[in-house]
Design a binder for these strands. Sequence first.
DNA 1: TCGTCGTTGTTGAGCACTCAAGCACTCGGC
DNA 2: GCCGAGTGCTTGAGTGCTCAACAACGACGA
Lengths: 161, 161
Amino acid sequence: MARRRWLDKDEQTAWRAYLLTTQLVDEALDRQLQRDAQMPHAYYGILVRLDEARRQPGEGTLRMTDLARGLRYSQSRLTHAITSMEGSGWVVRRDCPTDRRSQLVAITEQGVAALADAAPGHVAAVRSAVFDQLTAEQVTQLGAICAAIVRGFEPTVTPPG
Amino acid sequence: MARRRWLDKDEQTAWRAYLLTTQLVDEALDRQLQRDAQMPHAYYGILVRLDEARRQPGEGTLRMTDLARGLRYSQSRLTHAITSMEGSGWVVRRDCPTDRRSQLVAITEQGVAALADAAPGHVAAVRSAVFDQLTAEQVTQLGAICAAIVRGFEPTVTPPG
DNA sequence: TCGTCGTTGTTGAGCACTCAAGCACTCGGC
DNA sequence: GCCGAGTGCTTGAGTGCTCAACAACGACGA
């Protein structure tokens, strides 16, 4: 197998540009959210998920595990994050009535408010960092490229035999 | 101005895919390097830069500031990183002969060896996570997209008047 | 020579994450 | 009932980052 093959020139260029891009974008968004909404980017994502769950019919809560799987966070990471966010009053934990191991999480009114406050500035930052720089065609391309990469991480079913 | 404009459907899709992609790729590379080479991804990048400097004619060293600017790291981040890497024996600090504020950094033989050990596995991980999933055309597209985003972060000269 | 300002680098507190370990519970077979 | 494996969540140590404050030096004009 050709596992030791190096990156060719085009790949090198693309890779370095990719690394720099993700670093710059990540830092910009994290800094903006930390400054204007006192939360790291990861917490914003958690609030978004919980807010979406709230709008669904039913409980409006999510099990820790389901939330972690949806965000692809480790259980431990989510536990630490929720503990901190509970301290900020943005979320609450509840015991699960059907499985005593599980914990349900729900966004609070305060959390909804914090998200509503943070969203406009965050979206503006995303726009100015990313979408203002790209053509509509490039947005489509970016979506396809990322989808392909994500697909590579999905567990592949090993064929029988 | 239309600063409050939301993300449209295509942008939403692309953005969520982008976030998931960077998270998955970052974690995969960090984990692989941590496991196989006992270094975080950021330290790998520092070693690469210092190794490139070593191949150049001249001192083969870089000032802390120049290294930080090249990698777009904060001074503080680099100081902490170099301190830790010096503890691992991968780099050394030297006083700058022409400016007593400055510190020069050089990669050691041990650092060169650590990088040489780490490189094949790392490149394989990059390949399997990213380039194996993309067509040649997509690699070109990705390079152009990232270059455009990076350009957006470059300081723009405000025109006189 | 002096004061001032910009540059260079370090420090330490605070924080979010990882990893390994552990506790409490559920489920299924006996 | 009871044991074992699997699941859900938490804990705490270790680590790398940010941010603000600071110390030391260089450059330059008065």
